[in-house]
Design a protein around this nucleic acid. Structure first.
Lengths: 147, 147
DNA sequence: ATGATGTTTAGAATCGTTCTTCGTTACAAG
DNA sequence: CTTGTAACGAAGAACGATTCTAAACATCAT
């Protein structure tokens, strides 16, 4: 029973719902379902993949709601959008702390990577007045499975 | 007259055409026009922008030909595709040597950045068997104009 | 409980990109 | 030079991902 209770309020689910609250966004059943289906997923799913998972439990769920909710979560600061594939499709990442991504050129899998210790920014001179607010690093290559 | 001659065979134009030849791709008038319109452009244009420039000189140019040619150039190794904007649209970059990009969150401009000296890869342990073939670094922030 | 406001639904619309069909052109072999 | 073959380009239709629209509905502060 403790496990069941914990699954309802896993730390990530709780933090996503708190973020919605802070942003004055309503906690609707749809949003709750999407948060639960997505927030502990490290595979960087597409909106379609999240939608497919939810159809079973909420058959009336609209595709637009998935986009709207992920958008709301992003505005609330508990989700990020990633565009790392050739087709430009959006992948959603529930991790919002600093981290990088490795993309397998063969199978397309996206994996979180801890950033290099003492990673460097370009020399100020090379930035030429540009003010860096965020850094994204993408490693392209072959995952352990595909090698 | 030297200037005119040089403009017809700028080093980048020549290198792009050589690359086409090496890849056994034909040097058609359309491809030549696209190469000339694009190869010295550091603004990372969309296919639409390149198409608009060419309309004047080649009114019959098809939109698909722009994509096909940029694709051919990419396969030939003298162009890269960049997807750094929220809409996932493709930007084309004639620079194929190692460099990074800064994206202005206000105006959307994309600027080439020289990579940091001694930039680091993540620790092998964190890569967990992933074989890195290429690294892309994107800096998001404010360009000198928009600050 | 109630109402103002925010949200969902379903499907249409949009946007960037790719595909398809067919006519044209380049190049090679004779 | 002529012809065959494959590559290429034009035009527009098709496609897939995402966003918009209008109307019905649900949430939450009061």
């Amino acid at each position: 029973m403790e496990a069941r209770e914990a699954s309802k309020t896993s730390p990530r689910v709780r933090s996503a719902l708190d973020a919605l609250e802070r942003a004055h966004l309503r906690k609707t059943p749809q949003r709750l379902a999407i948060v639960r289906a997505f927030v502990d997923d490290t595979t960087h799913p597409t909106a379609q993949q999240i939608f497919d998972r939810l159809r079973r439990a909420m058959p009336t769920m609209s595709f637009a709601t998935v986009y709207n909710t992920l958008d709301a979560l992003e505005r609330a600061g508990s989700c990020r959008v990633l565009r790392v594939h050739d087709d430009g499709s959006a992948r959603f990442d529930p991790r919002v702390d600093a981290h990088d991504h490795a993309i397998c050129e063969t199978c397309g899998a996206v994996r979180d990577i801890e950033p290099a210790k003492r990673a460097r920014l370009p020399d100020e001179g090379d930035l030429d007045g540009f003010e860096v607010r965020a850094v994204e690093r993408v490693y392209r290559g072959l995952c352990a499975n595909c090698r």
